[in-house]
Each structure stands twice: as C-alpha cells, then as structure tokens.
Design a protein around this nucleic acid. Structure first.
Lengths: 228, 228
DNA sequence: CAAAAAATTTAGGCTCGACTAATTTTAGCC
DNA sequence: GGCTAAAATTAGTCGAGCCTAAATTTTTTG
C-alpha cells in the first residue's frame, strides 16, 4: 500500500498494463482480470500477479474478485503512454513516410524508449497536434485529453450526412481497406441504407457508393456534419 | 554449441553485451570477462553467466579463463547496433535539435526499439551519411564499416597541422567542453607545443591558442591534413 | 436455492539477468 | 618450483514476469 514516492523507472510491462487498463476503463467500472488478460494476450494468473505488483506500487486499486481501477498515479502513466504512442504515430507519418496502417507496431515499441525531451521535440516539430493519424486525441503534456463524443457510423440513421473523425482500430488490414475506400478522418459520408439485423450499411462518399460491414461501421466514429 | 538458426529476437541485454564486446575487440585478442564487466558496469559473475548464454546461441566463442571472441553472427548483431546507434544520433542532431553531447543516452535506448524499416527511413532522410556527429563511421546496411586509421592528437608532433576527424568519447561534459573550444570534427589545428611526461599540449585552432590535457588529446582523432 | 459454470486467485515452476560468496584456474614472482 | 595475487568460474539467491494446475469465489441457471 505504499505510494510510489520517487519516480522509480517503470518496466515495459507495467507501462503496457496501465495503458491497457486505461483503455478498458471507459465505462468507469472496475476492469476485470480476464479483460486485461484478453487484451494483452496473457493468462489470467499472470494478470493477477501483475495486479498485485501494480497495487503494491499504488498504480491501481484492487478489490479481489471485483476488478481494478487506476489510481491517479496509474492514470498519469497511462495517459503519458497514450501521448507518446500517438505523437510517435503522428511523427512517423508526418516525417518518415509511414502510412497509418504501419505505424502502430513501431510506436508500440518506441513509446517505451523515448525520453520526455524527445517526445516534446517531436510535438514541436509537428506543431503540437491534437489528433494522431487515426483521429485519436493526443493528450497534452499535462495529461489533459479531450475525449470527444463521437457516434459510430453504424448508428447513424439513413439519410444523414456525417464526417468521419476517428477510426478506432489498429489492425493494418482494416486500415489499408479503409484507406483505399477513402473512409478516413475528414471524409464526409451520407448513409444511404441500413440492412436490418446488424447487416451492412451503404454509404456514399466522394461520389461513389460503398457497402460497409456493421462491425467495421462501429469503428468509424463520426460527427453530424454541418453543411460546409 | 547450436547455431542460432532462426532469428529469435535478441534481448536488450544481449544486444548490449555484443556491442560492448565488439568495442573491446579492436586488438583482435580475446576479450576478458573483467573488461566486459567494467564496460557494462556489471559484476564479473554476471558476465560469466551471460557469456555462457551467448556461447549457447553461437554469438561468441568462449575459451574458459581465456576470454571471448565474437562469431560472425555475433559481429553482425554488434555492427547492426552500431549502425542503429550512430544513425539515430545523426538523425536526432539533424532533425530534432539534439546536440552532440545530449544524443548518446537517447540513442542508447532507442537503438533497441527501432525497426529495420525505421532505421533505413532515417538513413534515407539523412542521405545515407557515412559518419555520425562525433565522426564515428556508420556501417552500411550490409554491415560494411570502414574503420579509418586516425592518429590521436596527443601523438602529433609539434609543428604539424592536422584535421580533427573523430571524437572518441560519449561523455556529455567533455563534448560540451570540446564544442565550446571549437575542437570538433572538421576543425584544423596546429600543434604548437608538447609538455613533457604526458603533459598538456598546446594547439592553435581558428586563430586562438588552446591547452588540452593529454587524456583528452588521446580522444581527438586526426589526420594529417593537406593544405586546403 | 442449490448445483454447475465462469472468473479469479493461489500454488508451484520456469527463464532471464542481475547479485554475493566461495572455489578454481592462471599468472607473477622470489 | 612453489606461493601468492588476480582473474574467472561455480554455487546459490533474488525479483520480474510469464506459465499450468489446483483451489477458491462469484455468477448463473435449472
């Protein structure tokens, strides 16, 4: 139950766990061991073990059999990792010819290795961007992050026109598909038709019609767009 | 005694050991356990243990109580790390406002995290440089490295004029001192006087006279420069 | 509401890579 | 050539972070 008084360096694993728990915390409810295990591709006992260590370092609050919540310190770390990851993605795309489908893995390793100084240099080089290439918000250096509320394309009623703002997948294949379909952040699309029972939806974007599976349409986050 | 058939990923530690052993191999003689321990700041038994593991993976050749030599595979890894380290240094200095005294530590961590793709992108962005900011040669992507033979400034006789080509230290303090003294790769200096018994030497560079300690003068690697 | 199923934790084991203490080998010296 | 000092290795320990198998707790359900 001791706080992590000094800034002992955190291991790569600890950083990954905290980032993962943060991502699973969107509902505000405690995060289950099995969800963490699933997300990180580890066994449940491994996660139980790490939760104990995280709890010892006051990075999470754990109620046995009930789940974990990040402490303020844990959340700080998680958000710092998010900032790093997203800035690295933006930098690689902006300056080193990466495409949005290839940056994820590279950022996943670099985020543990870059210094605070380097991250801030990258941010400056990019002009302190607020979003990464997938439309994910980049926390500022004080850890503030504006999680805008978007509506999945799958839930937009027929007839409406929306703008895609964020693409919530890191799977390279899907991203490549979306790229070639022109369904990227900034694109305005009009929902033409919904097939029933979570079937595919038809949209028109940039003059052409496209059919998108329901699952994918859940990952295209949109805002009702004003006429422009 | 099995070769490392597939490319199992190497750990950070293994990469650091191989790089260290490479650096200690300049004479061609087997490298001693204690020299490795000293360089990496580890205990001798720790090094003995790692040597066994490296030897199992056919990355070094070990004769007990006699020392280690890199195998071809081990040397390939070491040179790849050198390429990474030096390209990262060059990139950070060239594109992200790092100075030559601050770049070492950052590169030390990044070299283990960057992918082959990223390294080659950096190389292209830099125009495939042959030297890093300290004048250290950057191996090409096939592992070829031209180790030019330089003469330490400490061994240049009085009266001669030479050009500094390489600065063989990574200590930030020394680098900052050299920077402010203008003693950087590319500078032409004339040796004015040698104090006896490894005393300081006096040089004139860019119009002004400077006194340099013997130890530091050993780290300034020069070529007899043609008049230009 | 009790039994089965699912989730979680505990128990015990493994590898990596570090350590200290003890032992063995080599090297230097009279 | 034998003795000592230095170098290297072996022995034994430890924490991190993973695993599987077994035990425990919670949840679901007939």
């Amino acid at each position: 139950m001791m706080a992590q008084s000094a800034n002992e360096p955190l291991t790569r694993s600890v950083e990954d766990y905290l980032k993962g728990i943060y991502r699973l915390s969107s509902t505000g409810l405690p995060v289950s061991t099995s969800d963490i295990a699933e997300l990180l591709g580890l066994s449940a006992p491994s996660v139980s073990g790490m939760i104990r260590r995280l709890s010892d370092q006051a990075l999470v609050e754990h109620v046995p059999y009930r789940g974990v919540l990040l402490t303020a310190a844990g959340r700080r770390v998680a958000i710092r990792m998010l900032r790093r990851h997203r800035l690295i993605e933006a930098y690689l795309v902006g300056f080193l010819d990466y495409t949005w489908d290839t940056v994820h893995d590279e950022a996943e390793r670099l985020e543990h290795a870059v210094s605070e100084v380097l991250i801030e240099r990258m941010a400056v080089a990019l002009g302190n961007p607020r979003f990464d290439p997938h439309g994910d918000p980049i926390p500022d250096s004080d850890g503030r992050i504006d999680e805008l509320v978007y509506t999945p394309l799958a839930e937009i009623p027929g007839g409406e026109t929306v703008e895609i703002r964020r693409v919530a997948t890191s799977q390279a294949e899907r991203l490549r598909y979306l790229e070639t379909s022109g369904l990227i952040p900034g694109t305005r699309v009009t929902v033409t038709r919904h097939q029933p029972f979570r079937g595919p939806i038809t949209v028109s974007a940039g003059g052409r019609e496209q059919v998108i599976g329901h699952e994918l349409a859940l990952q295209l986050l949109c805002v009702r767009s004003e006429a422009r």
